[in-house]
Write a protein that binds this DNA or RNA. Sequence first.
DNA 1: GTTTTGTTACCGAACGAACGGTAAAATATA
DNA 2: TATATTTTACCGTTCGTTCGGTAACAAAAC
Lengths: 189, 189
Amino acid sequence: MGRRSSIGEGELIEALSRVFRDTGYDGATLSILSEETGLQRASLYHRFPGGKEQMAKEVLAVTESWLTENLFDPLKTDAPIDERVQLLVQKLDALYSGGKQACILNMLSSASDYEGPFACAIKRIFEALIEALSQLATEQGTAKAVGQARAERVVMLLHGSLVLSRGTGSQKPFERFLEALPEELLGRH
Amino acid sequence: MGRRSSIGEGELIEALSRVFRDTGYDGATLSILSEETGLQRASLYHRFPGGKEQMAKEVLAVTESWLTENLFDPLKTDAPIDERVQLLVQKLDALYSGGKQACILNMLSSASDYEGPFACAIKRIFEALIEALSQLATEQGTAKAVGQARAERVVMLLHGSLVLSRGTGSQKPFERFLEALPEELLGRH
DNA sequence: GTTTTGTTACCGAACGAACGGTAAAATATA
DNA sequence: TATATTTTACCGTTCGTTCGGTAACAAAAC
């Protein structure tokens, strides 16, 4: 395998992720992707013969496995609930850089395109996220339905706070969401 | 003023709104905008000398005044609170077509571009929405700070439910948000 | 009451630039 | 040498934008 490349597989996907997340699919031109990865357009096509669409697909695939390994699975320990919820808060805070970054799921969702090339992956990630939170919420005797509803609401609040933070140019909404998360998820008012 | 136009000012902005809302700023090509408005590219430039950017700006301006006249102001009557909240629910349901449509504020927010051409208008609309809901929430003796927090949370839930509905291809999340809205805003648990 | 002039709305054609994508040569790794 | 990777140069298409001109209507001039 001949490689003199200055950029590794992980960093490559990371750079692509960043561009797609910050500019959306249409905004992510090959010039920007090339610039940000340090690879020429043709080099990108060597690694992703399927072009821009394949890049976005692989970004979503990596995002899914990353979330599974670094967020969903670590939440499944037998540590105390409050400890795990605190871990969730920390992970989300890091994942979205305190509300500065948008969510790639939102940025790659095309409104008109319900059967778009990414619809399946996006849907699966959303459902996995809700499921993970739901398991957290129901592990203290809470009814399954109630826990699921709380999990869905937390996901709504998460993405809503990100939209609001981006729209108002302030991280405050996201920070307030993180603060309210434990009570929202566990239902202690 | 000579005019043989087939499309009125209102319908024009409406068509442009639809395209920007469904495809985002980058996705809204002049070809699509031309197709959807029934005006040739050159004709669009006659009405909007500033080009695509001016179109989006005017769409946002019309959106802002529309919301003020048709949502914020009608909420300021002296009708019973529950009646007004019910009105809010109906208006939101119609505005987003039951969760089928995305929000143009989200679609025109560019992540990387905190000082983008639409940032000010978007921020203003978000804050006006929160303010309108906040007034509703505090008109029953609720403390100002509490009402404001509830209003912000409702806005988060609104946009989060839209993101989730779009991402999962289901209107359910938005519907569940609408159902929960009164309790969320007025704090009756 | 015509004719002229000016204004407004619209369109077809074209512009340069950038788009996503490709082929083959060049270069690095093994 | 053989293979993997990057590079250079280019393809056709579409992008946002502009230009020249035409049809319709209103005001002014005759």
